[in-house]
Simulated scan of single mutants.
Amino acid sequence: MSNFNDLVGEQLKTMDKLLFIQSEIERCQELESQILELQKETELETIQEEIKRMQEELVQIHDLFQKQTEEVIQSYQGKMHQTV
């Protein structure tokens, strides 16, 4: 059961990262809108690069989360087969 708990713990940490990055993307997108209104092209490009970088990171973390979900399921199924 320890392996299962460890996997779930890691998955929760990953979910926290996912939620954090999603909120950061929203924050940056709001900044992007404000910068567009002010027409500050150089700052806009920096924010757009940051949004792109975070979106790429979000995809990576999402993939990791999916992998961890599969590991959790496999671990749980292995536990169930051992107890049967």
Rank of each mutant, 00 (worst) to 15 (best):
T14A: 09
E32A: 09
E10K: 07
E30A: 11
Q77I: 14
Q60H: 06
Y76I: 08
F20V: 01
Q66C: 03
V84G: 03
T46A: 11
M80K: 09
Q34S: 14
F4S: 07
G9I: 00
D63A: 04
E50I: 05
V72S: 07
T69S: 14
K79H: 02
F4R: 13
I35Q: 00
K52L: 08
E45F: 00
T69E: 07
E24C: 06
V72Y: 06
E41H: 01
M1E: 13
K40G: 01
N5S: 10
E57G: 09
L38K: 12
Q66D: 09
L7Q: 01
L12Y: 14
T83M: 13
Q11N: 12
L64C: 02
V84H: 03
S2L: 09
M80Q: 15
K79T: 00
L58D: 01
Q82R: 06
K40E: 04
T42F: 04
L38G: 01
I47Q: 03
L31T: 08
H81P: 08
S75H: 04
I35W: 00
E37K: 12
F20M: 02
F4P: 06
S75M: 14
D63R: 05
I25N: 02
F65D: 05
I73K: 15
I25Q: 03
K17P: 00
Q82C: 01
V84L: 04
T83R: 04
Q11D: 06
M1G: 02
D6K: 09
V8K: 08
E50F: 06
E26A: 07
Q11A: 12
I73F: 04
G9L: 05
L12R: 10
N3D: 15
G9A: 13
L19H: 12
Q11C: 13
L18R: 15
S23H: 06
E24G: 10
E26K: 10
L7V: 00
Q34P: 01
E10Y: 09
G78R: 10
M15V: 14
I25W: 13
L38R: 14
L36V: 07
L44P: 08
S75C: 14
E32P: 02
M15C: 02
E10L: 14
E10T: 06
S33Y: 05
E37S: 12
K17E: 01
Q11E: 10
S75R: 05
N5L: 07
Q11I: 11
Q34E: 12
M15D: 05
Q82V: 01
G9F: 03
L7Y: 00
I73D: 08
L31R: 12
E10S: 01
